[in-house]
C-alpha cells in the first residue's frame, strides 16, 4: 500500500515537473517548484515507512522548512530585485539619498 502511495506521489511529481518545464510564466515555475517540494517531503516520509527507517523523517522535516525558505527567497528576488533588508530600511536609504 505504501508502494501505491509512493507511485501516486511520483505521478504527481511528474505532472508538477511538466508544469515547471512548460512555464509559460516564471510564476508558474515557482508554483510548480513549491508543489514539487511538498511532494518530495511526502515522498521521503512515505519512503521512511517503506524502508522502516524512521530517521528519514528528519529529512522530510528539514525539507519542509528549506523548501519554504527557497520559495520566499525567490519571491523576494522577483518582487524587489535584490536581497537587501526590509522595505522600511530601503525607504530610509532612499530618503537619505534624496536629502
Amino acid at each position: 500500500m505504501f508502494i501505491a502511495v509512493s507511485l501516486a506521489i511520483l505521478i504527481t511529481m511528474g505532472l508538477a515537473l511538466t508544469r515547471a518545464l512548460a512555464g509559460p510564466t516564471t510564476y508558474d515555475r515557482i508554483a510548480a517548484v513549491n508543489m514539487f517540494g511538498t511532494k518530495t517531503v511526502l515522498l521521503i516520509a512515505v519512503l521512511a515507512f517503506l524502508s522502516g527507517l524512521n530517521d528519514l523523517l528528519d529529512i522530510a522535516l528539514v525539507y519542509a522548512l528549506i523548501n519554504f525558505i527557497g520559495v520566499v527567497a525567490a519571491l523576494k528576488l522577483v518582487t524587489q530585485g535584490n536581497f537587501h533588508a526590509s522595505d522600511r530600511e530601503e525607504r530610509v536609504v532612499e530618503k537619505e539619498r534624496s536629502e
Partner: peptide, 26 residues
C-alpha cells in the same frame, strides 16, 4: 531564462535528495 534555471536547480536538488533517501543515505 536564468531565473527559471535556478528554479529548476531547486527541483534537481530535491530529486537528488530523493535518490539519496532511496539509497539509504540520510
Amino acid at each position: 531564462n536564468l531565473f527559471a534555471i535556478v528554479m529548476l536547480f531547486g527541483i534537481f536538488s530535491l530529486l537528488s535528495a530523493g535518490l539519496f533517501v532511496v539509497m539509504d543515505a540520510p
